[in-house]
Design a protein around this nucleic acid. Structure first.
Lengths: 225, 225
DNA sequence: ACAAAAGTGTTTTCTATACACCCATGG
DNA sequence: CCATGGGTGTATAGAAAACACTTTTGT
């Protein structure tokens, strides 16, 4: 019988959102292959760790950020996807507020950096394909799950949530209808605080009702905007 | 550096539908571990084949059936899921008409058999968990995709499609509203043929308009019954 | 007072749901 | 002629979409 010599890796596609821009966290590879090229953070799975542990560890090692919830995206196994030999990679997917983390490169990464998803550099391996699938998933999620908790500040004006949705959907939405729908979900708590953005009427701040938010996620709302 | 010694396998969860019953194809294991126990068909990935090739090959070897489209379900990587050592398994998912295939066990399988999903035997490894996730996916699919093409005969009366939906949803649906909705999707072509089921008015036969069907799948309709 | 962003209701349209009787055939 | 399953339309309620002016602040 042919001895199997397949290696297993994990990759973490981490999206951030800030003021109308969606970005993704990439690292510059320190070693060959693709030395000096940008790539999705990730690396080989160790013998005794779960896949989730592996992806969190690799992400932390290479970029300094620690995320406790990464969702499995897809497993990529094309035999020629890695020039070093057969490497099957399980890709994960996460959302964060970029400004809530300080990123710093280490181990296999020479550099770690946020890239706007509309201005991506050339990527290593089949990482462009992985990223494309992740972007599709991100845009798909919005229709069957509430989104925003992981991407917005703790306290935020309604307009931030609205801008997030217009950015992810790539089109304008009606402010009144949107507000009605979100309010109807009971997922936001209104605070006794306002924020002023220099000019214009100050906005009331909201926060997500965490319990209700995760309940909706679990139930899987269908949510057409 | 610690040399990685993880093995990679694939598993194929194949669902069948026949006259109001959903079944799944299982094999009885010929070798240890779990010798003589039922399991989801699958096995190790070879060095030079893609994951899709591997899962189709294993399914064919163990059960005799050949399916060209299996969808990736999830990757299971719990370090203790296999008593032989670290085995990560990529599970796939497919739908067929059981009566369109003749099943016969071979290679690692002592027997291959359809089981009603309400009367499952004890399963090997973490296959019960895999199957539960697959069943959830099957039930979820129905709300965002048309379904039935792979599960019904080429030509079928409307009532067959209706019964499939009631079975998958686990509840009754309104015959008139259901028909309206399906007809509205333009996914069925009416044939000039009828079928009689012994007593009662003969039913007009339909077939799926394949082009339209796969177009809807791709677009991803949201389809509440 | 004006510029800039936040906040708010009503009307219309569409979609989902509820609901019951007639039709065609076999025995 | 009766038992059995197949086929059909309409009315109502609820949800989504379209739509524009007023409020509050900073300058």
């Amino acid at each position: 019988m042919n001895k199997q010599s397949i290696k297993l890796s994990v990759d973490a596609v981490v999206f951030g959102y800030e003021e109308g821009n969606i970005s993704v966290l990439l690292i510059k590879r320190k070693y060959a292959p693709y030395k000096g090229k940008w790539a999705i953070p990730g690396g080989f799975v160790l013998n005794n760790e779960s896949l989730e542990e592996a992806v969190e560890r690799e992400l932390h090692e290479e970029t300094g950020i620690k995320i406790s919830y990464l969702e499995q995206l897809y497993t990529f196994g094309n035999p020629s996807r890695d020039p070093r030999g057969r490497v099957v990679s399980i890709a994960y997917f996460g959302l964060v507020r970029p400004n809530a983390f300080q990123i710093f490169a280490s181990t296999d990464a020479e550099q770690a950096q946020w890239f706007d998803i509309k201005e991506l550099p050339e990527l290593s391996f089949d990482h462009r394909e992985i990223l494309d699938i992740a972007i599709k998933r991100l845009q798909g999620k919005i229709t069957y799950e509430p989104i925003g908790f992981e991407l917005l500040d703790k306290k935020f004006p309604f307009s931030d949530l609205e801008k997030l949705y217009t950015t992810l959907l790539g089109r304008d939405i009606d402010r009144r209808n949107f507000r009605k729908k979100i309010v109807g979900l009971n997922v936001l708590d209104e605070l006794d605080e306002k924020i002023s953005k220099g000019s214009g009427r100050p906005a009331i701040l909201f926060k997500f009702n965490q319990k209700r938010y995760f309940q909706l996620k679990k139930e899987g709302i269908i949510f057409e905007i």
